[in-house]
């Protein structure tokens, strides 16, 4: 199903190893390396964590301690698209709870979950620095602002449509 168990592609391994070499110590590349793996596979599987750790000369515990520390590294599978809906104060004032409720209903999932079709994961995120267009959300790498329930739903529908 997922490619989480397949070894990291040679080219990705080489990029991680190169990065580790240029750092003062290889461990400095840990977040970047995890991010690179995640950009490719959507999340960091156990197998990939082990492989990355060995590329960086770190123990799996050490690297996983870092992976689980940061908000943006996913150690569980996510959908093909990730919606990160801001839950910080400006967006909250501007009605992010309503947007979230509508998204939940539309997608049939709660925050932290992935739609059964594997299309969309809904996550809360801290302030996206888009407060002048609150409520805001990040869909994959694209920032959307001035959301209301309808635009959010339309975006979510688009993701599922495009994904299936």
């Amino acid at each position: 199903m997922s490619t989480a168990d397949t070894p990291l592609p040679a080219e990705l391994r080489a990029r991680i190893a190169d990065l580790a070499r240029t750092e003062h110590q290889p461990r400095a590349a840990s977040v970047s390396a995890l991010t690179m793996v995640q950009e490719r596979f959507g999340w960091v599987s156990d197998a990939h964590l082990l492989e990355t750790a060995s590329l960086l000369g770190m123990s799996p515990a050490d690297l996983d301690g870092i992976a689980t520390y940061f908000n943006l590294i996913f150690r569980r599978p996510v959908g093909r698209h990730v919606i990160m809906l801001c839950d910080s104060v400006s967006c909250w004032i501007m009605g992010r709870d309503t947007v979230c409720a509508r998204l939940q209903a539309r997608l049939g999932i709660r925050p932290g979950e992935t739609t059964p079709d594997g299309a969309v994961t809904l996550l809360p995120i801290v302030c996206l620095g888009h407060c002048d267009h609150a409520p805001a959300m990040l869909v994959d790498r694209t920032l959307h602002g001035d959301l209301d329930a309808e635009t959010a739903e339309r975006l979510a529908d688009g993701l599922r449509g495009a994904a299936s």
């Binding site: 123990s59 799996p60 515990a61 050490d62 996983d64 301690g65 689980t68 520390y69 940061f70």
Partner: peptide, 13 residues
């Protein structure tokens, strides 16, 4: 090397 702190805030392990 095989013992570490995981997670953050009050969800430490």
């Amino acid at each position: 090397e095989d013992l570490a702190a995981f997670g953050a805030h009050n969800d430490l392990y």
